[in-house]
Design a protein around this nucleic acid. Structure first.
Lengths: 250, 250
DNA sequence: TAAGTTGTTCTCAGATTGAGTTGTTCTCAA
DNA sequence: TTGAGAACAACTCAATCTGAGAACAACTTA
């Protein structure tokens, strides 16, 4: 069966119904811990379980647009602050039995956001909150969302290696230490401060100096840190590789 | 609108129809050039244009299963030879106007295959052939398949860096030179033979020796080469990075 | 048998990395 | 006001990795 079987006049309703949804694995860093935007389901199936924000793709709407819309609805975010959120496609999940009600193919997306205010309850009766990723077991998650989250976390860890997207977790101006803390939080282990500093400044286009410094030193002392903003590189050359490990375990 | 709006008893036919297809960017290497499996469309839209092999996801069928089925149908491949083809999800394409007939979300896949026999014409009146990727302009391609192919080629180039999947373009036993030629073909530029050799043998789990050698030396002379098979690594540590370039252009 | 090709190993300089040290600027509390 | 501790930023140095080229033996064809 090929696409050319889609002849003009073909009636899609003759075909087995498939619904297409977009889901979003939205990550942010709060108080030094990686957090994930989740919604508590009120109705069955999986009532009381946590689920990713998501919903049907609307007619006339691109997949990425749908994901950004879902993110906006659940976070109450809009305008410039929404635009600064990094959003990319993660992958599609279409196991025939992943939703007990009908065939649903979900196009999952991955978002990196700076620390955002707590979600406001919207018109839906949903409870949407940022939860630390460490506080989750896949038993508490609806559908195959545990698997999607695992894939999203692994993608996030890997993206930090070869793209400058760690800056998307921060305000427009940031210090090298703040940037290092993003890496340490997402990768889950400490990095050598001096080597990280050298590396970040040596990779072309990763960060550019603003010329300014922080108002104050660190909370417990230390000099004022220089401020940087994201550079214009889309990829890091050479990459910032995470230290070799046996296997990545969650 | 959230997934919890999928209440039991919800009738999917009330919802705007979306069709889900799987498409496959299948790559192989023939006569030192990267080739792509394409199908010439007989019927409008895009009659006479080249398109990726693909079709509807069948009920009860996983996305990856559907992609492998489409690949099998177009190549006539089955059994062990089909199983040795690497297949991974590439991404989903769902722009509202990508198909003029109706809303179609395509889940594209990427396949790496060893040199295969020419496709046999199957029950469809399709003409399916392996075409060199250099012989393509996006004007000759149906739908957004030019874009999908570009994404697939970039993914392939990138995958060779940090996975051992280059071996999937080769027979179960191969020489280091054959492996290097895969890299040179996919990346599009020559590599230093000595350094490549050193690197391949030093990365743990990339290849393992069979103990045997080729029957004959090279076509124009030279010693017999040692034979290797793929090792058990899923990822290359450290990676085999392609030389830095300004920007990857196609 | 000669000439040329190729697989494999080696050498060496330059770049990159990991680990630790130093100097200075700052905060907090005595 | 000052001392103690913290943190930013720069540096050092050894170990490792990379790029480029050379060497050499094993093979081919002419």
């Amino acid at each position: 069966m090929n696409e050319q079987d889609f002849l003009a006049g073909y009636d899609p309703r003759d075909y087995p119904a498939v619904a297409v949804t977009v889901d979003v694995v939205a990550l942010t860093i709060r108080e030094g811990a990686l957090h994930l935007l989740l919604i508590r389901r009120g109705a069955p199936p999986y009532a009381g379980h946590w689920a990713l924000p998501g919903g049907f793709v609307q007619p006339g709407e691109d997949l990425a647009t749908g994901a950004r819309r879902e993110l906006a609805e659940e976070t109450g975010l809009g305008g410039e602050r929404l635009r600064r959120v990094h959003l990319e496609q993660l992958g599609s999940y279409g196991a025939p039995d992943r939703d007990p009600r009908m065939r649903v193919v979900s196009v999952a997306h991955l978002a990196f956001a700076p620390d955002l205010p707590d979600p406001v309850a919207d018109t839906d009766a949903d409870e949407a909150i940022w939860l630390p990723v460490t506080a989750l077991t896949s038993r508490q998650l609806a559908f195959d969302h545990g698997r999607i989250i695992d894939d999203g976390l692994e993608r996030a860890r890997s993206k930090l290696e070869y793209t400058p997207l760690a800056t998307r977790f921060l305000a427009p101006e940031f210090t090298v230490t703040e940037l290092r803390e993003v890496y340490e939080t997402v990768w889950g282990h400490p990095l050598h401060a001096g080597n990280f500093h050298r590396k970040v400044l040596s990779v072309p286009g990763f960060v550019e100096s603003t010329g300014a410094s922080t108002e104050r030193g660190g909370a417990r002392g230390g000099p004022r840190a220089k401020l940087y903003r994201a550079g214009d590189a889309r990829l890091l050359h050479p990459a910032l590789l995470r230290p070799a490990r046996e296997e990545t375990v969650r």
